[in-house]
Design a protein around this nucleic acid. Structure first.
Lengths: 100, 100
DNA sequence: AAGGTATATCGACTTTTCCCGATATACCTA
DNA sequence: TAGGTATATCGGGAAAAGTCGATATACCTT
């Protein structure tokens, strides 16, 4: 759990938004055909459309969030799905309460 | 409480260290003559020496941390003292737990 | 008022981050 | 295996952050 890496990942408006969207996918994204929000999350294309940035940028942002541990990814067929790693958020909350 | 500003303030190794030093000033800084750690915190010069960066850089870092709300400052004579705003850390911990 | 000390601000340069278009890779289907 | 679709990676230009030295400001002491 690299604190600095996590805070850098959180230091971007779009990335913060993505995290919030992924908290309640059914509220923020249209129904997905090939996979369930609960099990694997939301695919890159949906997130990209909603963010309104290019595919490459959003792909990179998701990768940054994943490397920090805040997101997890699942590849299913030609899609990559991202979902929140709630344990990481809980751990971060505790680190701020007790360590930082 | 501007989340983005807070995370940017936390996205620097030296600034993270400063926050930790200020958690237990008596452990990390020599005795101060003109003010108490508990009441007002630690003066800029002490923090600068410990950080090993220039005076201007450390002054700016402290200002960034203050603007984000994580630190508070008190001017006493020719010294400015900085101390942690523990309420801000508690609030941030809660935001991460429930909002982000 | 003058000189000394502590801090803040300014201007400049370097490094990192943002964000894009282009291209590569992976996988699926006919 | 050829073509289509989804995602990842690469290279680069623009913007922001890191960091410094120099200077300004504030305050204290004599």
């Amino acid at each position: 759990m690299d604190q600095l890496e996590i805070f850098k990942a959180l230091s971007n408006k779009t990335r913060l938004q993505i995290l919030q969207w992924l908290k309640e996918p059914e509220k923020h994204f249209p129904v997905q055909e090939h996979a369930s929000f609960d099990e694997v999350g939301v695919c890159v294309g949906q997130i990209q459309q909603k963010a309104g940035l290019t595919q490459s940028t959003v792909s990179e942002y998701l990768s940054i969030l994943q490397k920090s541990g805040l997101l997890e990814s699942t590849r299913l067929g030609q899609w990559t799905y991202y979902r929140r790693n709630e344990e990481a958020f809980a751990a971060l909350s505790n680190i701020i309460k007790s360590e930082i």
